[in-house]
Amino acid sequence: MPSVTTFTTSFISPGALSSFIATAPTMRSEITSEQRSALAERFRQVSLPHHRRLDAWMVEQAAGQSSPFRWSPTTARRVLGNAALRLRFTQQLSPVVAMDEVIVDHLTRAATGYSRRGSLSSWLSELSTAQLALVTSDALNWSHALEEIARSIEESVEVADADAYYDVATARTTLRGRRDLIVATESTCTLIRVRSGAPGRTAGAGLRADLTIDAFSRPDGQVASQIIGVWPDAGLLLRVEGSMADLRAGARDLLRVANLQHTAYFQRALTS
């Protein structure tokens, strides 16, 4: 009988997140090189002529069409907010000073020619002061929300340095797993993802995909004990445990998206 994923939900309240972290499973699974090869083989079967990037959002939307990406205060807030909080934790700066440092760093990169066209630095450098203030305000909101979550955890927390990326060998596919906070204890590792709005019916599958990508991106293949999705707007927490069954389900979801894209691409090619 196939194992089923167990999603655990809770309302946000003082101590709720800490209690999820304290009860993380201590047994941790590991990805073997055979499993990596098997995944690559499956992705190669549904590859596209061009490079593609898959993430949890595409799993949640079942590869549905989304509008083309453009930088806006909303799309920039997570990158800037996470960077500012990381700086605040390491250098003990005030939230506003940390955010200013991050933005100045981006503007300097653009001014000295170290940013490519279409990057966040280049977009920020084209904004007026009022627009930059709006971007700062949104990023500070994100940073405050993330800090509030981090401070509600009793264990020591670190802001993730970057998202997890895994290049599937010779399948022209990159998997991107988002993670905002990492709580590592002696025997457990918890990933935390902060999301806007309210969780939909596919939110659990999205978290499972992030957990899977994170495990594949680690050279030692260690799977995190659990991933917790935090929806501050809805006051909800959702937990997915890092069992091998969850990992397989996560990989299947990602392959399903790849397959949908593959089918759609060749159908378009046939009709045109």
Partner: peptide, 26 residues
């Protein structure tokens, strides 16, 4: 309010706010 919360001082409120709004919604 969002701009004031980060200490922005307006030169021309209408144009500043309109440009901030445009940046957000396209």
């Amino acid at each position: 309010l969002r701009l004031l919360s980060v200490g922005y001082s307006f030169t021309d409120p209408f144009e500043d706010l309109l440009s901030a709004w445009r940046c957000e919604v396209g």
